[in-house]
Design a protein around this nucleic acid. Structure first.
Lengths: 352, 352
DNA sequence: TACCTTTACGGGCACGTGCCCGTAGTCCAT
DNA sequence: ATGGACTACGGGCACGTGCCCGTAAAGGTA
């Protein structure tokens, strides 16, 4: 069983053009030292036979390594959400290792804008060929993007997007639609006279993500003439005591709340409150497949979790950078992840 | 930026063992022609330095191609479900092409046991190195598996499993849990006095899948003391007229059916009936992301679709075969896919 | 004319592995 | 002693590409 007669290599091109493989190589990597005439001839042949370089041989022969950087939040005691993307990044790393690709991960503190900026500086010092970044702080990301454009370094965003910065791609959820799905699930069995509570727990003020999600959530109510009244609350402190205090107040003011929607992964804090205050009849939906949340899912306090395959986001992000740099294959500007619905019954099979 | 000093090749092993690379190679591929003493010495060195062969170089140097076969149902006018796994198989094929892997797909008619057997014969004539198969007919699959074992050809099942046949792996849903999830969704907003209808539409009698799903479905009712009465119906003809006739009868006998669960992708036929008979208030859940089903999802007739990433099943199946044959990496015997919940609101992002 | 520079190209080694072929050494039958 | 068969091993080419280095030809300068 022999490999089919694919003489479609540089040698074949060289043969047809009556030149050496070295000259073909120069054309392929558009280096200097080839006359315009020869160049045109070779390019014509390349195009005609739709030459696809053998990446195995290419990566084997090339001593150059490709170095990629990933800049994402560190896991904190608040949430281990980012361990999933990191996991995907590591998975990509081990796959790409033998192809001469090196990956370096830079972690920053989600509550510390300066650590983000500092790590960006470190990334630039490293002179990487491609960068994956979670654009957690808008202004800093803007400057980061500008510098990347200047250096012509491809970069891409995961988990949340900042449009218009010439990123190679965005890999993450369609947040508006995600909120839309949340509203569907939350109202699926909700009685019309009950109120719905939107809860946003976040220290960051300029939370672009949150606005998108809430917008989608409300859009569902409009589109479907959902009669329920919507109450919303912003909680700027993330500790349990503060959250409990605010929620106690809200539930005191609104006796007939039938369902609550938490716009991020801190839904477990709300779950804890509902359980402690014996309000588990309230439907609860929130985000992300993190341990604490799954526990409350198991416990029937959280009804549904919405997830966007964070592991895959990391993996695909790194792979997309590799594809661009090595095969310079085109990558879709928007790469929306599925909006997964996780319940007590199916979570054990959820593959992040 | 140079590649790190990894002298971890056969050359290094040869140097340390004071032999030539050819001898190391013989040991690595346990071919004959090496004395026991030398063999032991080389094996010790290999183990000590945890030698990882360079797959790039290996595949490049090897003229042998690896040929894989995929044996799956053809798309029919009844359902295009199997276009998704086929798609995943093609995706794997194009990725593996440059690694010297060839893929050949064999299609059979789901309604024709003989075409299945015939294609199995063709597969064996091809002398493939690894085989992916959808074990649609149990007896024929048994014989297939026995022959594979005799030939020492690795094979794996996708979409449904037949345990105990020494398949390399099963890649597909945990059907019992899948039925369990279906029951959860179906009863989520169901009133206690309403009845639940389980519908199985299938020409095949020995439908192992169906039994598993129904078992899981009923298990949910038991585990959660769900009060609803369950009515079930088997329909052996798959055309609309037959289905409508049977359903008309069932709905006539049971006035208070509040929800229906279809155990396979033919849920669209039921949806059509419900719509035509103005019974869209009945909650409806079924399987698989196929065009017709999505249309009724869009139309609010089907509430939820349960899916098991058929595309991914094909992709992962081929990749698993490749991993075993080339890197001879271990593959998990059971590879359960996520149980995805697809609704009108999130289907546009579902990536099969 | 002698020498230098630039342009345009070919030769050939390297990457790490697979594997064919050759051969020195040993043992045994003629 | 000669020949044949077998064992245990080394040499070396090939896979397709990257890229260093060498060089002939053309053109320019003193």
């Amino acid at each position: 069983m022999e490999k089919e007669n694919e003489l479609f290599g540089v040698k074949e091109i060289a043969r047809r053009a009556n030149v050496s493989t070295a000259t073909v190589d120069r054309v392929l990597h558009n280096r200097t030292g080839v006359s315009e005439k020869t160049k045109a001839k070779i390019n014509a042949i390349i195009k005609e036979m739709d030459y696809q370089p053998n990446i195995l041989a290419s990566r084997l022969a090339s001593k150059k390594i490709i170095s990629l950087a990933a800049l994402i939040p560190d896991v904190s005691e608040e949430t281990d959400f980012w361990s999933a993307p990191l996991n995907g990044i590591r998975r990509a790393e081990s796959e790409l290792k033998q192809y001469g690709v090196q990956v370096q991960v830079f972690l920053f503190d989600l509550n510390d804008k300066d650590s983000f900026a500092a790590q960006i500086r470190h990334v630039f010092e490293g002179g990487f060929h491609g960068i994956l970044i979670s654009p957690s702080f808008i202004e800093e990301t803007r400057m980061f993007a500008a510098e990347c454009v200047r250096r012509k370094t491809p970069f891409l965003f995961i988990d949340s997007d900042i449009p218009g910065l010439h990123s190679l791609s965005y890999i993450g959820p369609h947040l508006r639609k995600s909120g839309y799905v949340g509203a569907k699930l939350l109202t699926y069995r909700l009685e019309p006279e009950k109120k719905v509570l939107i809860i946003n727990i976040s220290k960051e003020i300029d939370n672009f993500n949150y606005l998108e999600i809430e917008d989608g959530f409300r859009a569902y109510f409009n589109d479907n003439n959902q009669p329920n009244e919507i109450v919303r609350i912003d909680i700027r402190e993330t500790d349990y005591q503060s959250v409990a205090r605010h929620l106690t107040y809200v539930f005191h003011l609104n006796k007939d709340i039938g369902a609550a929607f938490v716009t991020n992964s801190r839904v477990h804090t709300v779950a804890s409150f509902l359980k402690n205050s014996h309000r588990t009849h309230v439907s609860l939906i929130g985000y992300d497949f993190v341990k604490e949340n799954v526990n409350y899912l198991e416990d029937n306090v959280i009804d549904f979790l919405i997830c966007h395959r964070p592991d895959d986001q990391g993996y695909r992000g790194m792979m997309a950078l590799y594809q661009t740099l090595v095969m310079n294959a085109p990558v879709a500007r928007q790469n929306y992840m599925p909006i997964d619905i996780v319940t007590k019954e199916n979570y054990e099979f959820y593959q992040n």
